[in-house]
Simulated assay, not measured.
Amino acid sequence: MADETVGVVGAGIVGLATAREIALSRPGTVVVVLDKEQEVAAHQSGHNSGVVHAGIYYPPGSLKADLCVRGVALLREYCQERRLPYREIGKLVVAVRADELDRMEHLYTRARGNHVPDLRRVGREEIRELEPHAGGLAALHSPRTAITDYPAIARELAKDIEASGGRVRLGFPVTSVRARASGVEVGSGARRLRVDRLVLCAGLQSDAVARLAGDGREPRIVPFRGEYMLLKPDRAHLVNGLVYPVPDPRYPFLGVHFTPRVNGTVEVGPNAVLALAREGYRRTRISPRDLLGLAGYPGTWRMAARHWRTGVKEYRGSLSAAAFMKDAAHYVPGVGVHDVVRGGAGVRAQALDRDGTLVDDFRIHRHGRITAVRNAPSPAATASLAIARHIAAAVYEGS
């Protein structure tokens, strides 16, 4: 007989890692992962860039920074043990304008505070040695930044769960969550499942599922679609590693960059445009329900008032490949619209507070037997194994 049954809603990489961590750290506990899709990693975990971030961007002492740095080591070890792709191809964070140099220096100080390994400043000549086709005045070089295959990792985590005696139940859309004296009852239509504890890792649906469980209405999820171009195969040689811009600290998005993938392709992007559906991977996908939810939330309008100029610029790049590639050409001069084809897209679950603030760190709410992960932004995939330990500790805090 199991000591306890723990349910986890969401078969993305954070939900699967959390279920695995609970199974490993609490012998005798049976974990059950529930997801509405027919495969694991169907949304954010299966549509991200595949980058293993080294911890350059995050404020020292923040949960993001701590979990990212710890998560990299755990993920590298896991990939090595399971013979999953993990390639340290390095990253250049490139300043292309003089007014970006101070921001780059601040980023360097921040990254040093996070103990990013082997990070160093490089000048124009060394940029060319590392990336012969790149432009820029100066850059930060992070040689340990890596790429991997997150859907493959998610599938391996699911195998671990089942090997521990747990289950991954796909095709189980959660429609009700009710706390009972003896545990938590999770419903999917007419189906019912009783668990002793429940963890919500629902990504794009995290606020909706949390409300089913009686959690507060905020933060709300705003979906941002990130669209990619792909370098044509005969142009993929133009970059050796990751080439990124110096980020604007006012926004949680990193801007258009060049990302080699483990399959040999090179992505250019993403942009960040407001999606018209939570799972709006195509521009033509519109959900009236999701739109009404966005329109009825005061935070949406306050965010729009602050960032409308950036929004217009991002939509221009979405509609025009030439405009999209104009930004990319700052970092790899000479690359233009004729060197790329349209690639895929992902949708980011961006949490938003009522005052219009884009939530930038992890948020986890716990009430009784239910623990809700309300925001797990990038670098959630990188940090997934460390996040799992953090969530598992929160689930049992005070028990």
Score class of each variant (00 low, 15 high):
residue 202 A to E: 13
residue 224 F to E: 14
residue 258 F to T: 11
residue 220 R to E: 14
residue 242 L to K: 15
residue 287 S to H: 08
residue 258 F to I: 15
residue 278 R to V: 02
residue 206 S to G: 13
residue 275 A to E: 07
residue 204 L to T: 12
residue 229 M to F: 10
residue 264 G to R: 01
residue 216 G to H: 08
residue 267 E to R: 15
residue 233 P to L: 06
residue 219 P to L: 10
residue 239 V to H: 04
residue 268 V to Q: 04
residue 237 H to T: 11
residue 270 P to S: 09
residue 221 I to Q: 11
residue 270 P to L: 08
residue 267 E to I: 09
residue 225 R to M: 12
residue 280 G to T: 00
residue 268 V to W: 02
residue 243 V to D: 04
residue 231 L to A: 06
residue 250 R to I: 00
residue 283 R to G: 08
residue 275 A to S: 14
residue 207 D to G: 02
residue 228 Y to S: 12
residue 277 A to C: 05
residue 287 S to L: 14
residue 212 L to S: 12
residue 274 L to V: 02
residue 227 E to C: 10
residue 239 V to A: 04
residue 243 V to Y: 04
residue 265 T to H: 08
residue 271 N to E: 03
residue 270 P to G: 09
residue 283 R to M: 09
residue 281 Y to E: 13
residue 228 Y to C: 10
residue 209 V to T: 15
residue 278 R to Q: 05
residue 232 K to N: 04
residue 232 K to I: 00
residue 231 L to P: 05
residue 212 L to M: 09
residue 227 E to L: 09
residue 281 Y to Q: 13
residue 238 L to W: 10
residue 214 G to I: 04
residue 281 Y to T: 07
residue 263 N to Q: 02
residue 245 P to T: 02
residue 243 V to Q: 05
residue 243 V to R: 04
residue 241 G to E: 06
residue 205 Q to M: 05
residue 247 P to S: 15
residue 216 G to F: 06
residue 246 V to M: 08
residue 252 P to Y: 01
residue 224 F to L: 10
residue 241 G to N: 08
residue 264 G to M: 00
residue 284 T to E: 07
residue 280 G to K: 06
residue 218 E to S: 01
residue 273 V to H: 06
residue 284 T to N: 03
residue 209 V to N: 09
residue 215 D to T: 04
residue 271 N to M: 02
residue 247 P to K: 14
residue 286 I to R: 11
residue 256 V to D: 09
residue 282 R to T: 12
residue 244 Y to T: 14
residue 208 A to N: 07
residue 250 R to G: 06
residue 252 P to N: 04
residue 234 D to M: 10
residue 230 L to G: 02
residue 264 G to F: 02
residue 234 D to Q: 11
residue 215 D to V: 05
residue 272 A to R: 03
residue 232 K to G: 00
residue 277 A to P: 02
residue 236 A to K: 03
residue 260 P to Q: 04
residue 210 A to E: 01
residue 221 I to L: 13
